[in-house]
């Protein structure tokens, strides 16, 4: 497994604003890599420098052994960049869109039609791109990014403004793309998306990477509380406090009693002893907690 992307100490300043401030990471071949952070964290600027749309003030980027800046057509045939859902040629149908993009890479129309079918849009082939739903538009834009069979795919906030069902469908598609052996680099401001899809995530804020690693180990490395909820009435606040022991918190909002503890095993065993496990909910720490822990503030999506 070679490293396909090597980013070393990227800097990009706009006046006083340090949009990207010393970012370094590398992505392995076939990896699903996420850049996570709130709006304005510098994710998109970082991605644009890697893609070759912007020049870094300093630092280096190497993709497949080549530099993306200045514009390198040889590299461009091997990377796929997703458009935003609205970035289509005006008044062209879905099929015409993808065929146009295919021809830019010298790919035959037949291959373009296959790609359209692969993202589940063959029955929308004759629909003008403007009339596709958000999720369909996003799938078309991903199909356009994949039509030339690139080694690396860059996706900039692909699930922004999608309803939950469309997001799930999109996730399935993105997993398929990664399973076929492509390296995928994705930016997102959704914690759950990064957690669900990425092999590794870089958490960015204020132009710098705060933490980098597999989502699970980031969460594990966190000394965070586990929240255990039961239906109100099954256990009184008093007995819950007694059961959970010192250091735990107990809260009753009228619907459920929630115990926050750093020793979930002991609490769960005690609950099992009392035969109270029916309807129980256990929620471990998430990337959201990691972010909160790193920045000391709530995650603003």
């Amino acid at each position: 497994m070679g490293q396909t992307i090597i980013v070393n100490d990227l800097q990009k300043h706009y006046g006083q604003v340090r949009a990207v401030d010393g970012v370094s990471f590398s992505v392995e071949q076939g990896e699903f890599f996420g850049i996570l952070g709130p709006n304005g964290a510098g994710k998109t600027t970082t991605l644009e420098i890697i893609e070759g749309l912007r020049e870094a003030d300093s630092g280096t980027v190497e993709i497949l052994g080549m530099s993306p800046w200045p514009r390198n057509p040889k590299l461009l045939t091997r990377i796929g960049v997703q458009l935003q859902a609205t970035s289509f040629f005006e008044r062209l149908t879905a099929r015409e869109q993808i065929r146009t993009f295919a021809s830019l890479y010298g790919v035959a129309p037949k291959k373009a039609d296959e790609m359209l079918a692969q993202v589940g849009l063959e029955d929308k082939a004759d629909t003008p791109a403007e009339r596709l739903s958000g999720g369909q538009g996003q799938r078309l834009s991903i199909a356009c990014a994949l039509v030339h069979d690139p080694d690396i795919v860059f996706l900039d906030e692909p699930s922004a403004a999608l309803d939950p069902q469309a997001r799930r469908n999109l996730w399935d598609l993105l997993r398929q793309i990664n399973d076929s052996g492509r390296t995928v680099v994705l930016t997102t401001h959704y914690m759950d998306e990064a957690e669900s899809l990425c092999d590794r995530v870089a958490i960015m804020d204020n132009g710098a990477i705060l933490e980098l690693g597999p989502p699970a180990s980031l969460v594990r490395g966190l000394e965070a509380v586990t929240r255990i909820s039961l239906e109100t009435g099954t256990l009184s606040v008093e007995s819950a406090t007694e059961l959970a022991g010192p250091g735990a918190t107990v809260d009753d909002d009228g619907v459920s009693v929630t115990i926050g503890t750093d020793d979930p095993a002991r609490v769960l065993t005690a609950l099992a002893d009392r035969n109270l496990l029916t309807g129980i909910q256990v929620r471990g720490a998430t990337l959201e907690d990691v972010f909160l822990n790193l920045t000391g503030r709530e995650y603003r999506a």
Binding site: E51, G52, L53, R71, P73, K74, L76, T77, I79, V81, L83, Q84, T86, S87, F88, F89, E90, F101, L104, Y105
Partner: peptide, 18 residues
């Protein structure tokens, strides 16, 4: 304007077209 605002220009820049 529409190609720039809809980011088609940027997309074309990322395709191997002159």
């Amino acid at each position: 304007v529409t190609w720039r605002e809809k980011r088609i220009l940027r997309r074309l820049r990322l395709a191997p077209v002159s």
